[in-house]
Amino acid sequence: MPHPVRYAEDDPYLAKLRDICLAFPQSAEKASHGHPNFYTRKVFAVFGGVVKGDHDSDRYAQSVLVLPDAGEREALLADTDRYFHPAYYGPSGWVGYDFRAGDVDWDEVAELVDTSYRNTALITLVRELDTRG
Rank of each mutant, 00 (worst) to 15 (best):
R118A: 11
D19F: 00
T40D: 10
E108N: 02
V113E: 01
V5W: 01
Y89C: 06
R6E: 00
V66Q: 03
D10W: 06
R59F: 02
P36D: 00
P91C: 09
A8R: 14
V46W: 04
A28C: 06
A110V: 00
D107C: 03
G96N: 03
A121H: 11
R73F: 08
A31N: 11
E111A: 15
Y60D: 04
D19N: 07
A45T: 00
W106N: 05
V104P: 01
H55V: 11
P86N: 08
W106V: 09
G90R: 11
E9F: 06
T80A: 14
Y97V: 05
K16G: 07
F38V: 02
L17F: 03
V66N: 03
S27T: 12
D58G: 12
A15S: 15
R118Y: 09
P4E: 02
Q62F: 03
L17A: 00
Y7P: 05
G49W: 00
S57N: 07
S27I: 11
L76N: 04
D56Y: 08
L17K: 02
K16L: 07
F47T: 09
T120F: 06
S116I: 14
D114V: 03
D54G: 07
A45P: 04
D58K: 13
D69W: 00
S57A: 15
P86E: 09
G49Q: 01
L129T: 10
S63P: 10
P12V: 01
A110L: 02
D81S: 13
V113S: 00
T120W: 06
V126P: 12
P2K: 14
E111G: 13
Y60C: 07
T80K: 15
L77K: 09
D81K: 15
R18H: 05
K42T: 09
G34L: 05
A75W: 03
V43M: 15
W94I: 02
G102P: 01
Y39N: 11
K30D: 10
H55C: 04
G90H: 05
F84M: 14
H35K: 13
M1E: 12
T124E: 08
P25H: 08
L122T: 10
R18K: 05
T131F: 01
K42D: 13
R132M: 12
Y39Q: 13
V113W: 09
L65H: 02
H35Q: 15
E111N: 13
A70H: 12
S32L: 15
P2L: 11
Y60G: 07
T80F: 05
S57E: 08
Y83G: 03
Y7V: 07
L65P: 01
R82L: 06
A31I: 15
G34P: 06
L14D: 08
A31S: 09
S116P: 04
L14Y: 01
